[in-house]
Simulated assay, not measured.
Amino acid sequence: MEVTPTEPPAEAMESLHVSNPETAGSSGTSNPNPAAQLSLEQRFQIVRSVGEECIQEDELRNLLEKKPEPVCYDGFEPSGRMHIAQGVMKTINVNKLTSAGCRVKIWIADWFAKLNNKMGGDLKKIEIVGRYLIEIWKAAGMDLDGGKVEFLWSSKEINGRADEYWPLVLDIAQKNNLKRIIRCSQIMGRSEQDELTAAQIFYPCMQCADIFFLKADICQLGMDQRKVNVLAREYCDDIKRKNKPIILSHHMLPGLQQGQEKMSKSDETSAIFMEDEEAEVNVKIKKAYCPPKIVEGNPCLEYIKYIILPWFNEFTVDRSAENGGNKTFKTFEELIADYESGELHPADLKPALAKALNKILEPVREHFKKDSNAKDLLKRVKAYRVTK
């Protein structure tokens, strides 16, 4: 029997109403809405700084001018231990967005992890991993007390509003050919050449639908998710929707070894994990690719640019007087100038980087040692086999 899906419900397609200002407080401040003290340009610069790319800047500025609390959507598959890019970079980015008045919906994509065969497709294991990831963000300092960050489990939300979600997915599927959908396979960590299951072909249609289902104004995801976010903007053309989701794609931190464009959870030498012990961090950084005077493709320098400087607003190198003495860098440009000239050597940079990383990770390590629930979650996650 041929079924003609109805047009996506208007409720799914409209922009989210401004939330109750009484719940918009931010922790650690007497001002219930610190973003209200910022100018439009200040808010724009903070939000824009999150993305390596923004589609489109004029739309972002217009959104911030017209809507006090735009909704940002971010999502993740619970697929194993959390590396530092997902842990620290996401914490930095979420805190920037909430400081500028945004609300952040973090989509715990458990069904998507099952579709993509993560944790062998075992939903119980996937849930354990999801709970472990939330514990890390709590310990890392993500601003969860202000009421502006919401964790949503995809299975629960979709089941609760199935009549809204599935017509939307079907409509997106009908308006795109198979070739266009397969081109989005990068979002799953797959390539167009991989032998995809039918479930993995369905995945991009669902992720595109998420954006509208969550009433997101801004898609705040990595550069590797860009294609499906563009698909969502193209879908707006198909349905004659004027307000398109703004794409704010953040930088992808490379692996620690030479030529690794992206960190890998299955290769423990490629990444620092959020609960790595101090000695593990030291060894990984010591073995990391960091050629003297070479900036391009240098993962240690990327760590400093995207993690250390945004976190501490400076990077301090301790070294002997014969090697130039201690120096604190306030900007990445200043650091690069010294590194390219040879004035700053990897032998001095690496210990300073490891020290700074350990300072960031120490509260997370402590949380997983002292909190019995977190400790149990970590033990279980470490026992799981990571599946591609």
Results as ranks from 00 to 15, higher is better:
residue 221 L to T: 00
residue 359 K to L: 15
residue 289 Y to W: 13
residue 148 K to R: 15
residue 327 K to R: 07
residue 33 N to Y: 11
residue 97 L to S: 03
residue 59 E to N: 02
residue 277 E to N: 04
residue 302 E to R: 00
residue 85 A to I: 08
residue 225 Q to S: 06
residue 382 K to H: 07
residue 39 S to V: 08
residue 165 Y to C: 07
residue 190 R to G: 03
residue 28 G to I: 08
residue 81 R to S: 14
residue 387 T to F: 11
residue 20 N to W: 10
residue 161 R to Q: 10
residue 242 K to V: 15
residue 172 I to K: 01
residue 156 K to Y: 13
residue 75 G to M: 07
residue 10 A to T: 11
residue 335 L to P: 09
residue 359 K to V: 11
residue 237 D to L: 12
residue 223 M to D: 00
residue 107 W to V: 07
residue 76 F to V: 06
residue 146 G to S: 06
residue 138 K to V: 13
residue 239 I to R: 02
residue 270 S to N: 05
residue 381 V to R: 06
residue 19 S to Y: 10
residue 128 I to D: 08
residue 345 H to A: 09
residue 159 N to T: 05
residue 364 V to A: 05
residue 135 E to D: 11
residue 144 L to A: 07
residue 307 I to V: 14
residue 70 P to G: 03
residue 304 I to P: 06
residue 353 L to R: 01
residue 7 E to W: 15
residue 4 T to E: 06
residue 255 G to R: 01
residue 310 P to G: 01
residue 272 I to K: 04
residue 32 P to C: 12
residue 282 N to L: 13
residue 103 R to G: 03
residue 384 Y to S: 05
residue 283 V to Q: 13
residue 24 A to D: 10
residue 71 V to E: 08
residue 269 T to D: 12
residue 297 G to D: 05
residue 34 P to L: 09
residue 230 V to I: 15
residue 13 M to K: 01
residue 110 D to A: 11
residue 343 E to F: 15
residue 23 T to R: 10
residue 149 V to Y: 08
residue 314 E to A: 14
residue 28 G to E: 02
residue 19 S to P: 15
residue 117 N to M: 11
residue 296 E to N: 07
residue 310 P to W: 02
residue 17 H to E: 12
residue 144 L to M: 12
residue 29 T to G: 09
residue 41 E to A: 07
residue 349 L to R: 00
residue 186 Q to D: 09
residue 248 L to Q: 00
residue 134 I to P: 10
residue 144 L to T: 05
residue 5 P to C: 03
residue 116 N to L: 10
residue 377 L to A: 07
residue 75 G to T: 04
residue 292 P to G: 01
residue 179 K to S: 15
residue 335 L to Q: 01
residue 224 D to V: 03
residue 29 T to Y: 06
residue 338 D to H: 07
residue 166 W to A: 02
residue 269 T to F: 12
